[in-house]
């Protein structure tokens, strides 16, 4: 997962992302790849508690050199897409867990990445919020976005097109559903 997200580089082997071999890239180049190609959704949400929702969503754009007005506009658009258009000035502490995770999804979306990596995005959520977030992912997927989601829960996994089961670090089975996309 960390290698997929370019947070770590493989010790052996290689990893091509969108046609580029990222295993030999420098720290700064990797940061650029993460910034442009990948959107992260974490189990812990990892929102900055002191910033309002839109500033959290804006964060990846800050590192692209985009103008302030455009950043804000795109952040608000992303929040509207996840159904939080009326919560843009709320701080994470003022939002429910499900809402916070949706802010995190908006943050992953805002740079329009090739790939969204979700590391147990429903792990900290109740079933109702989980369903919300999964519905959001399904919707994004239907719009043609690649999503890699890691989960322990079978019913969450069931919503994917392709399931790769990993047991003790080994690929156990790859249940291919119609169109596999990444790797």
């Amino acid at each position: 997962m960390h290698i997929l997200g370019c947070l770590d580089v493989p010790t052996t082997g290689s990893y091509d992302l969108a046609g580029e071999d990222v295993s030999t890239m420098s720290e700064a180049a990797l940061a650029n790849v993460r910034n442009r190609q990948i959107g992260f959704v974490f189990q812990q949400f990892n929102l900055l508690p002191s910033l309002p929702a839109w500033r959290n969503v804006e964060l990846p754009l800050c590192y692209t050199g985009m103008a302030r007005a455009e950043r804000k506009e795109r952040a608000i658009n992303a929040l509207e897409r996840v159904g939080l258009g009326d919560r843009i000035e709320h701080r994470p502490g003022e939002l429910s867990g499900g809402q916070q995770q949706r802010v995190a999804v908006a943050r992953a979306l805002v740079t329009d990445p090739a790939l969204i990596l979700a590391d147990e995005p429903t792990g900290n959520l109740d079933s109702h919020s989980s369903a919300d977030v999964l519905a959001l992912f399904t919707e994004l997927h239907d719009q043609g976005r690649t999503i890699v989601l890691i989960t322990h829960e079978r019913d969450v996994a069931e919503s994917a097109q392709r399931i790769v089961r990993i047991l003790d670090g080994q690929v156990d089975s790859a249940l291919a559903m119609p169109a596999g996309t990444v790797r």
Partner: peptide
Amino acid sequence: GLRKAMGATPSA
């Protein structure tokens, strides 16, 4: 860590 994951370079 989060800022780095979001694309902050070491120099940033």
